[in-house]
Amino acid sequence: MIGWLLGISILLACWKRVDLFRSFSRGAKEGFENAMGIMPALAVTLISIRVFEASGIMKELSAFLSPLAAGMGLPPGVMPLLLLRPLSGSASLSLLNDILRQYGPDSRTGLVASAMMGSGETILYTCAVYLSAAGISKSRYIIPVALAGWLAGCVAAGLFFPESFA
């Protein structure tokens, strides 16, 4: 897919007479700055996640959450992602990477976590940015509705990779 995407965008760019080198390098620069820009946030969240895991609470929390995971048809390993995805982009990115490394990217846990991550957004941040820009402090039903959507998306991700899958 990535190869096709590259081919198509180069064709389009040539057809529209875009300055290939300048455009691509400008985009790459933005990508570089974005990646470096999230580094400090990743450090804070990864330090917290590592401390939380090493202390041993993570195990207790997982044991507590695994019946809930079973009820939603999800592998227990994705539960931390389910909780943190709506709250923080950097925390969920760190968690997804940990899940991919720990369970393997092609395990059921890794696949479901990837699909979940791709189907969700940082709900609280998104709402806060746009509402405060519009000078609004009340959020009415936006957050509960978005969270319901998120949970439904998670269940759907679980259904796509059934238990027997891997």
């Binding site: 389009l12 455009s23 691509f24 985009g27 790459a28 990646a35 990477n97």
Partner: peptide, 22 residues
């Protein structure tokens, strides 16, 4: 993690910019 992400961020950053400019 940033290093792991960097390849994707640089590549997609460039490709998406191309698509946008096109």
């Amino acid at each position: 993690l940033v290093l792991d992400l960097m390849g994707g961020f640089l590549f997609f950053g460039g490709v998406i910019r191309l698509l946008e400019d096109a």
